[in-house]
Design a binder for these strands. Structure first.
Lengths: 165, 165
DNA sequence: CTGAGACTTGCGGATTTCGCAGCAATGGCG
DNA sequence: CGCCATTGCTGCGAAATCCGCAAGTCTCAG
């Protein structure tokens, strides 16, 4: 539904860039610290009225520039195995990427320059699940020539502070 | 800050997963769809009172199981270059990971099994910035033996739906 | 049995959200 | 130049939500 809004919208908007000004940036920063912060508090912080903040936030959400969501550590939610998978593709990379994007276990799909054509992050419940996804599902996608897996041992950092610097 | 001094409680939580039940999972799913959804609406959806939802959400936040934040597409916020960097480490991997975690450009740091010991995601403003981070900063960290970079060409998918399956 | 923990219901008061009526600045356009 | 539509902001009530608190229920463990 709107789970992929950020990624998909960014493609749509390539030629209509929203041009965020300093105030919108500041609003986003506020919401990156706390997604439930009241509009009035944000307004005080960025120098705008409560109503103005509300309108801008709504627009940012509608445009898909940002989304306000709960994020969790997969391990604490029952997903015990994660891996980054580098993929070598022959033929059309984009179509392979689309196929992987359609898989619910693929949390993250990106086309890259370098020794891999694609990198995808996989989130699974256990080893069997992970094995199945990598060896049966991913390698079955037409165009996938080979894969290399990096099983996660420990997630050290995970932030959502883009634009805060 | 809060009362974590209770002996039994702290023992449970120290080693990771607080074992979320179905109801907390359902609450998280609600907040993954909309981080600002009112507690009463969540309660109606998961079969709990407004007060109970409020208490559970607060606890989930305090425990660090989830966080409610705004997430954006880096490209629309002025960060034009991203890369995944695989790192070979000699010596203590954890200390290298800590050093990378401290760098604001490192959005994501994970220890892995496979041909890389660490994988980090870098978010930068431009090519110069990216070059500086990879060649000067990361490679300057003691223990980093070599790196391999995968510059992002196109982000195809990026979800935050852990636990929704 | 007793205490702890979690949930519910109910309740006010403070806070927040929300819709709407202005109002000022902007940018075509005849 | 005047007109008008658009945009973004403010101010203001009304409605909804948040939040703390108290009392009662239920379950589980010691």
């Amino acid at each position: 539904m709107h789970s992929e809004a950020v990624a998909s919208r960014s493609a749509d908007q390539r030629n209509g860039s929203p041009q965020l000004d300093a105030v919108s940036l500041a609003i986003i920063e506020q919401l990156q610290e706390d997604g439930r912060r009241p509009y009035a508090a944000i307004g005080k912080a960025v120098g705008l009225s409560e109503a103005a903040v509300r309108q801008r936030v709504q627009k940012l959400l509608d445009q898909g520039v940002m989304q306000i969501v709960a994020v969790t550590d997969p391990l604490t939610v029952g997903f015990r195995r994660q891996a980054m998978v580098g993929i070598h593709v022959e033929g059309d990379v984009e179509s392979v990427a689309d196929a992987l994007t359609a898989m619910s276990e693929c949390e993250y799909v990106v086309m890259t320059a370098g020794s891999f054509d694609l990198m995808v992050e996989i989130v699974c419940e256990d080893d069997d699940h992970l094995l199945d996804v990598i060896n049966r599902r991913i390698r079955a996608v037409p165009g996938v020539r080979s894969t290399e897996s990096f099983v996660y041992l420990k997630l050290k950092k995970q932030t959502y502070m883009w634009g805060t610097r």
